[in-house]
């Protein structure tokens, strides 16, 4: 068994190397390690980016941040866990668009107003895709509208699972275009939508840019428009947003940091400052941009305002679909 234990020790050293610069902090907070609950499975986009941010932030805080994954039930399992935690700043968590939506959908009793928002991290804007392999092969949004108006329910659109952020985005797109599409929800991750569209199993798709970029560059998928508030920087800056085209469909999936309810203001500010520095760090920025997301720091107040604006859009969609469970 000796070799086994030896190898375990080697493993452990590597693991400890990840986040253990234990330089003692001078100020009172933080004076012990912080736990961060990520409500997603290891390896998800939100997990990888947040781990990178947390690693950097821990350098500024002077305490290691231990990441704990609590995935499940559309991130609400992780929110539940965080909601119960002591608001002493030693348990924080990350959130996504589901935080705003889950209450309206009746999945989870709390929303963004019930937590102590700390800092906004980055945007992941939904984009509208068209397949080049399916029998329709649309070139532009106008073409989609013209065809779909003439043939209701004939055009299929792949989306992420019902109730998810990009599914809401897809509903917004369908409503804004004023057409009747055949929405085909896929199980979970954005990659499935890309597969369905690239393989020609669906004519259109709404998903994240990061998952689709490779196929767009290879010409297997056409990038028709951004269903968010801004265009993507870089190579695909020429692709317009739907709003610019005159269709009112805009949402942003995001990742941000929050704490349990009623966390003291000083702690929130201290954390927020550390996360701001982390997000603006060139190395972290490069990681997030390399995954095709848009880093943007927002302090708690701006973050709350952003959530409230997003909420209005979601409510309209859910109301129209008769899926609004609580106000």
């Amino acid at each position: 068994m000796k070799k086994l234990w030896l190898s375990i020790v080697v493993f452990a050293f590597c693991v400890c190397g990840v986040g253990a610069d234990c330089a003692a902090a001078a100020a009172e907070y933080p004076n012990k390690p912080i736990t961060c609950i990520i409500p997603m499975e290891p390896g998800a986009d939100g997990d990888i980016n947040m781990r990178t941010i947390m690693k950097k932030a821990s350098e500024f805080l002077g305490q290691p941040i231990m990441v704990v994954n609590k995935p499940g039930a559309g991130q609400t399992m992780g929110y539940r866990e965080l909601y119960k935690a002591k608001p002493d700043g030693y348990t924080i968590g990350t959130c996504a668009a589901s935080l705003i939506m889950a209450k309206m959908q009746g999945i989870y009793p709390q929303n963004h107003r019930d937590f102590s928002l700390v800092a906004f991290g980055y945007h992941a804007l939904p984009i509208v895709l068209a397949s080049t392999a399916s029998k329709h092969s649309f070139q532009s949004i106008e073409e989609v509208v013209a065809f779909a108006k003439a043939n209701p329910n004939a055009v299929s659109m792949a989306t992420t699972s019902v109730g998810g952020a990009y599914w809401i985005a897809a509903q917004m797109v369908e409503m804004a275009l004023k057409v009747d599409l055949n929405l085909i929800p896929q199980e979970g991750s954005a990659g499935f939508v890309v597969t369905a569209v690239a393989g020609g199993h669906a004519d259109l798709g709404v998903t994240s840019f990061s998952a689709a970029k490779g196929q767009i560059e290879a010409g297997k998928i056409r990038f028709l428009g951004v269903a968010g508030p801004q265009r993507y920087p870089g190579k695909f800056n020429h692709v317009k947003t739907l709003k610019e085209m005159g269709y009112d469909a805009s949402m942003s999936s995001f990742a941000a940091v929050m704490g349990p309810p009623r966390m003291p203001k000083e702690i929130v500010n201290k954390l927020s400052a550390a996360i701001e520095k982390a997000i603006k760090d060139p190395e972290v920025e490069r990681t997030i941009v390399s995954r095709n997301m848009i880093p943007e720091y927002m302090p708690p107040e701006a973050f709350l305002k952003f959530c409230n604006e997003q909420e209005v859009g979601y409510r309209t969609v859910l109301e129209k679909l008769n899926m609004l469970k609580t106000k």
């Binding site: 375990i8 020790v9 452990a12 693991v15 400890c16 736990t35 231990m66």
Partner: peptide, 10 residues
Amino acid sequence: LLFGYLLAID
């Protein structure tokens, strides 16, 4: 030692 300390599982 293995799970609680080295792997830092809570």
